[in-house]
Computed example of a mutant assay.
Amino acid sequence: MKASEIRELKDEEIVHEVRRLRRELYTLRSQAVTEKLENPRQFGVIRKDIARLLTEQTARRNQAKTAGAAE
C-alpha cells in the first residue's frame, strides 16, 4: 500500500485496515510456526504497511489538534 493510497482513506477505513493487517500478521506468525510460508517477505511488507497507516493516523490527529488550537 502506497502513502498516496493511504492519504485517500477516511479515518474509519484506516482503523479498519490496521485491524485487518494485524490479524493477517498474526495468521502469518501462526503459519510460520506450524508450516512453511510461501513468502516470508510478507512479514516486512505487512509491518511496514501498518507503520504507514499508523503514521498517517498520528499526523491527522496532530493536524486536528493544531487546527483546534489555532481557533
Results as ranks from 00 to 15, higher is better:
A70V: 08
R22D: 05
L37R: 06
R61T: 03
A3Q: 09
S30Y: 05
I14H: 03
I50K: 06
R19G: 13
E38L: 12
T27A: 15
L54I: 00
A51M: 01
V15K: 15
R22M: 05
R19V: 14
G68K: 10
N62K: 01
M1P: 04
R41L: 10
R19E: 15
A64E: 07
A3F: 02
A69T: 06
I50N: 01
E38M: 02
E35V: 15
T66R: 12
Y26F: 08
Q57N: 09
I50F: 06
L53E: 04
L28M: 14
A51G: 00
V15N: 11
E24Q: 13
E35G: 12
L25R: 14
I14M: 07
A3L: 01
Q31F: 04
F43G: 07
N62H: 08
M1T: 09
Q42H: 02
E56V: 07
R61S: 02
I46F: 05
T34M: 08
E35I: 09
R41S: 15
F43I: 13
A3W: 06
A51F: 01
R23I: 08
L9S: 10
A59C: 00
E38R: 14
R22H: 09
T55W: 01
A51I: 03
I46L: 12
E13Y: 03
E56L: 05
E5F: 13
Q57C: 01
R20L: 11
A67R: 11
T55C: 04
Q31M: 11
K10W: 10
K48P: 03
S4A: 08
R20N: 00
D11F: 10
S4P: 02
K2S: 05
V15C: 12
E12L: 15
E71Q: 09
E38P: 05
